[in-house]
Structure formats: C-alpha cells, structure tokens
C-alpha cells in the first residue's frame, strides 16, 4: 500500500478513483504521563510521553485508513491529510483521510 500526500506519482498512472477513505483514533492520556507533564509545565521542554502517545495514535488512525482502502480494493492512498481535535478534556482525536485509488 502506497501512502502519500501528493496527488500525482511520477511515472505512475491512476486507473481508478475509489473515493475517500478515513481512519481515526481517540486517545486519553494516562496518569503517570500526566504527572510528568505537570512537572515539565514548570521547567519547560519537550513532553516525550505525549509525543509518543500522539505518534502511536496517529499510526493507528493511518492503519485504519489503510484497512479501509484495502477493503475497497485500492493499492494506494493519495493526498493524505491529518487533523487533530480535542474531544473532551484529556482526550484527543487523531484523524487521517485520503483518496483511495488504483495505480497501474
């Protein structure tokens, strides 16, 4: 499965458009990380726990998007976008979407 955020792949032709595919994942932070983050809020600096957490959930969102693309018979997802929104206090939604296509 080829995943990219450009619309044209050099040297490859799109034979079929299969529409939008999407995947999302909602995650809450856990307490241990929150305590560390509280400390970091005094000293400043990178919150590694959060970086990892968001990275993981983004990968999961992408995984779900790819599963959907496979289900409709695509072999590539073009023009992928990511978006983040906070649903409730302490939980964030990571969302990935793109166009499923068949490349020759």
């Amino acid at each position: 499965m080829l995943v990219t955020n450009i619309e044209i792949i050099p040297g490859k032709r799109i034979t079929k458009h299969l529409g939008l595919v999407q995947g999302s994942s909602v995650r809450a932070k856990h307490l241990g990380r929150d305590i560390m983050a509280g400390l970091k809020n005094i000293f400043g600096g990178e919150l590694k726990g959060y970086t990892e957490l968001l990275q993981e959930s983004r990968e999961e969102a992408m995984e779900r998007m790819i599963q959907q693309a496979e289900a409709v018979g695509a072999n590539a997802v073009l023009n992928v976008r990511f978006s983040t929104s906070s649903v409730a206090a302490g939980a964030a939604e990571l969302f990935a979407y793109g166009t499923a296509v068949v490349l020759e």
Binding site: V3, N41, I42, G45, E46, L54, Q55, R58
Partner: peptide, 16 residues
C-alpha cells in the same frame, strides 16, 4: 521514483 509519507511531531511545554 519511489515515494513515501514521512512525518515528524513534537510536543513542547512552556515553562512557569
């Protein structure tokens, strides 16, 4: 050419 999606992310906190 071959293509691949790459990404990088970071969370930075502001100090007191």
């Amino acid at each position: 050419v071959d293509v691949a999606l790459v990404s990088g992310s970071v969370v930075i906190s502001v100090d007191y």
